[in-house]
């Protein structure tokens, strides 16, 4: 797309119920939607999507380091993409560098060791394992 403003990138905002944890401009953003990753650059068609568990990658952040994209772990929530803004709304968000890798692995082990009886409990267990695995993966990178 021959957009003269391409350099301006997209504005990425991540809000949790307690605070806004990130508000930055970036070249593009990768979002962990419920069914897989989705990249958003400037000019993306507007949409509202449900998020799964995983890391939001903010590539080419203004004022950030060029070779290491910033990663923010999110657990569920929604994303709203406007013409040049990405708003992530989630109940739990953590900067990747603040995740304790050991603790994440312990969490994963506990989730895997737990036993569940009944459909709801089994579903909850899978969800917990998925969340713990994604957390450990984000921490490990």
């Amino acid at each position: 797309m021959a957009d003269t403003k391409t350099d301006a990138g997209v504005r990425c905002v991540i809000v949790t119920p307690e605070t806004t944890i990130l508000d930055a401009r970036a070249r593009f953003v990768t979002l962990p939607l419920f069914d897989g990753l989705l990249g958003v650059a400037r000019g993306h068609a507007p949409f509202i999507g449900r998020l799964g568990v995983g890391a939001v990658r903010i590539v080419g952040e203004q004022g950030g380091s060029a070779d290491r994209p910033r990663e923010v772990f999110v657990e569920g929530g929604f994303v709203e993409v406007g013409h040049d803004a990405v708003t992530v709304i989630t109940q739990r968000a953590l900067h990747a560098e603040k995740i304790d890798a050991d603790q994440a692995r312990t969490e994963l082990a506990t989730a895997q060791a737990s036993k569940a009886v009944g459909d709801d409990a089994i579903a909850a267990r899978f969800k917990a394992i998925e969340a713990a695995r994604a957390l450990a993966r984000t921490a490990g990178r």
Partner: peptide, 15 residues
Amino acid sequence: QEYDFYPSAESILEE
């Protein structure tokens, strides 16, 4: 602004 919904408006509403 016409929004698309992934997966659908109903599913997002539910959450």
